[in-house]
Lab assay of single mutants.
Amino acid sequence: EPSQADLDALLSAVRDNRLSIEQAVTLLTPSSGGGSGGGSMDAKEILTRFKDGGLDRAAAQALLAGRTPA
């Protein structure tokens, strides 16, 4: 399960175009075949909204942490 520091680094990389959204989703869902963790939004949607400015960093982190299976 990614830590808050991992999520923060991942969000920074996506925002700075050092990591594509697809690459980030793969890192967030290493063994689930890329499927959502059952959250209301999947990781790709969360990351896309964050990059487009629709979500701030704290909200994106909380959503990603919340949808990651324990």
Rank of each mutant, 00 (worst) to 15 (best):
F50Y: 11
A62P: 01
R67N: 15
A24N: 00
A62E: 15
N17K: 08
D52W: 05
G37I: 14
L27F: 05
L11N: 01
L11D: 00
T68Y: 11
A62M: 10
T68S: 08
L63C: 07
S40M: 14
P69D: 09
I46V: 06
R15C: 13
A5D: 06
A5N: 15
A9N: 06
R67D: 15
S3A: 10
D52T: 08
R49W: 04
T26P: 04
S32E: 13
R67V: 15
E45C: 09
R67C: 15
A59Q: 14
D56M: 04
N17P: 00
F50R: 00
A13M: 11
G66Y: 05
L19A: 02
R15M: 15
P69E: 15
E45V: 06
R15E: 12
G35W: 02
T48Y: 04
L7V: 10
G37W: 09
S32A: 09
G53P: 00
R18K: 14
S3H: 08
Q23N: 08
S32W: 09
L7G: 02
S31T: 12
D56R: 03
D6G: 09
I46H: 01
G53Y: 04
G33V: 10
A9I: 08
G54T: 11
G54N: 15
L63W: 03
A60C: 05
T29Y: 12
A70R: 10
L10V: 11
E22H: 06
S31A: 12
R18T: 10
L19Q: 02
L64T: 01
D56F: 02
V25Y: 05
G66F: 05
A43N: 05
G53L: 03
G66L: 05
Q4P: 14
D42Y: 06
V25L: 11
G39N: 11
G33S: 10
L11H: 00
A43D: 04
T26L: 15
S20Y: 02
R57Q: 06
E45W: 04
D16V: 03
G39H: 13
Q23T: 06
A43Q: 05
S12H: 06
L7P: 02
R49A: 08
T68N: 07
N17F: 03
S12R: 10
G35E: 14
L19Y: 04
P69A: 08
T68Q: 13
A58H: 07
D6F: 15
A65Q: 12
L47N: 00
L19D: 00
Q4R: 10
R67H: 11
S40W: 12
G38H: 12
M41W: 10
G54W: 09
L10H: 01
A24T: 02
S3N: 10
E1M: 12
L47S: 00
M41V: 10
M41P: 11
Q4I: 15
L7F: 08
A70S: 09
A60D: 00
L19P: 00
N17Q: 05
G34A: 14
A43G: 04
G35F: 04
L7I: 12
S32T: 13
R49E: 04
P2V: 07
A5C: 15
F50Q: 00
L7T: 04
P69C: 09
Q4C: 15
L10Y: 03
A9H: 08
P2W: 14
S31R: 08
Q4L: 13
L10I: 10
L28H: 02
V25T: 06
D8R: 04
I46Q: 01
S12E: 14
Q23V: 07
T26F: 06
A58Y: 08
G38C: 14
G35Q: 08
E1W: 12
L63G: 05
R67M: 15
L7R: 02
L64R: 00
P69V: 11
I21H: 01
V25C: 09
D42V: 06
L27G: 03
G39S: 13
G54E: 14
P2S: 11
T68H: 08
S40N: 14
V14G: 00
L64V: 02
D52S: 07
A65G: 13
A70P: 11
A58S: 10
L64E: 01
D16Y: 04
R18Y: 08
A5T: 14
G53I: 01
M41S: 08
I21W: 02
D56Y: 02
P30E: 11
L63S: 05
L47E: 00
T48H: 05
L55S: 01
Q23S: 09
R18S: 09
A62F: 03
S12N: 09
G66V: 09
L63H: 06
G38Q: 11
D6N: 09
G66S: 09
L55P: 00
S20F: 02
G66Q: 13
A59P: 01
L55T: 02
D8M: 06
S12G: 07
G35H: 13
Q61P: 00
S32L: 14
G53F: 04
G53E: 03
V14W: 02
A24G: 03
E1K: 11
L55A: 01
G54I: 12
T26C: 14
A60M: 02
A62R: 13
N17C: 05
G34R: 09
Q61G: 08
G33Y: 06
L7Q: 02
G37S: 09
P30L: 14
F50D: 00
A70K: 09
T29M: 08
T68W: 11
G39I: 13
K44I: 08
L47D: 01
T68P: 11
T26H: 14
S3R: 12
M41C: 08
A58D: 11
A5L: 15
A5P: 14
N17H: 06
Q61M: 15
T68E: 13
A62I: 12
D16S: 07
P30R: 12
P2G: 12
G66R: 05
L11V: 02
G38S: 12
G37M: 12
S40T: 14
T29C: 07
S3T: 07
A59K: 08
E1H: 11
S32K: 10
R57M: 14
D6T: 07
Q23W: 04
R67I: 15
R15V: 10
P2A: 12
V25I: 06
K51G: 02
L10M: 06
